[in-house]
Design a protein around this nucleic acid. Structure first.
Length: 117
DNA sequence: GTTGTGACATTAT
DNA sequence: CATAATGCCACAA
């Protein structure tokens, strides 16, 4: 017997929620990445839906989910945009022009090698 | 059943 | 950088 319609969809949403809930503080992922980790490759849009439908009681770290290239998908200056940026900054991340400045290998080198390490 | 839209992604131009 | 095309899943009209 195949699952009733709506049940499978619910399962997908919950799978996505689980993945998002496991995102470590100070780290970030993307819609596509979350979808893939949830076993739903190429279902990035579904992740957006899932986050929108997510009950607040779950307390999901939705701010750690970004668009491709670490971009904040909300319209610049919108309430959600500022909220997300605020939370990201609070976790020690760097946000420049609506984008999370992901640590590059070069910078890490400079950081590790910089002081006569 | 088709069309349009959405917290998106990838590839090509 | 921007645009267009295609893919993906779900929902509303």
């Amino acid at each position: 017997m195949r699952p009733k319609p709506g049940e499978a969809a619910r399962a997908r949403l919950e799978a996505i929620w689980r993945v998002v809930a496991r995102l470590p503080e100070g780290s970030v992922s993307t819609y596509g990445g979350v979808a893939a980790s949830a076993g739903l490759p190429r279902a990035a849009r579904l992740v957006g839906r899932a986050l929108r439908e997510a009950p607040k009681s779950l307390g999901l770290p939705w701010h750690r989910v970004l668009g491709a290239g670490g971009r904040i998908v909300f319209p610049a200056g919108s309430r959600n945009f500022r909220e997300q940026r605020r939370r990201l900054l609070a976790e020690g991340l760097t946000v420049v022009r609506g984008r999370v400045q992901l640590p590059r290998a070069r910078d890490l080198d400079a950081l590790l090698w910089g002081s006569d390490g």
